[in-house]
Amino acid sequence: MCDTCGCNVTPAADTHSVEVLKGLLDANDHAALHNREHFERHNVLAINLMSSPGAGKTSLLEATIEALGEKLRFAVVEGDLETENDAERIRKKGVPAIQISTGSACHLDAHMVHHALHDLELDDVDVLFIENVGNLVCPASFDLGQNANVALLSTPEGDDKPAKYPVMFRAADLVLVTKSDLLEVLGDFDPDAAEAGLRQIANPAPLYKLSARTGEGMDGWLDWIRREAGSRQ
């Protein structure tokens, strides 16, 4: 008998115990499934970008649009709840960006994304990026219906982040070490250590180094998108 599972709580005469066995995030997961059906029906590849604040999500999107904008039709859902800055930066590149403006400020959930989808013509989209709120903790718990989770780890943050934020990095299908142009200046970020940290949490995801600023290493990422998008057409 124990205190935690409640087997020793004796019900009073007018009380009774009801077995539920339901996931706390059932409602979110249901909405995520619905989003996934939307994406499938319209042959859209949906990518959830997650990272700490300022790791370079929007910069990566700008560089990606510049490189592949002629070949693939992009759209972006922006999770920056405080400002329109990121959405404006994307629109300047000629790509539709929907700003999510309601909800808690620390993560996106499937309902918010679903709501944003109604403002998008998914038939005209090949790849939908969802830029999640900059936060290495909260977004990891919420399925949005994405086809892939991409986690960014910028070099100034340190190579120990997979070990410190295992829930986030365990969920990643691809890890991008961003701002690789700073590797030399920093001197103490070891990409191999970051990769080892990822394996320690049993994640086989590939890890690419790149710099959105210099363009170094972008090819691996761009090939990955083309491959993932191609496999859906």
Partner: peptide
Amino acid sequence: LILQRVVVGEV
């Protein structure tokens, strides 16, 4: 992350 059971009263 599971809701296992609930004890309710005053039915």
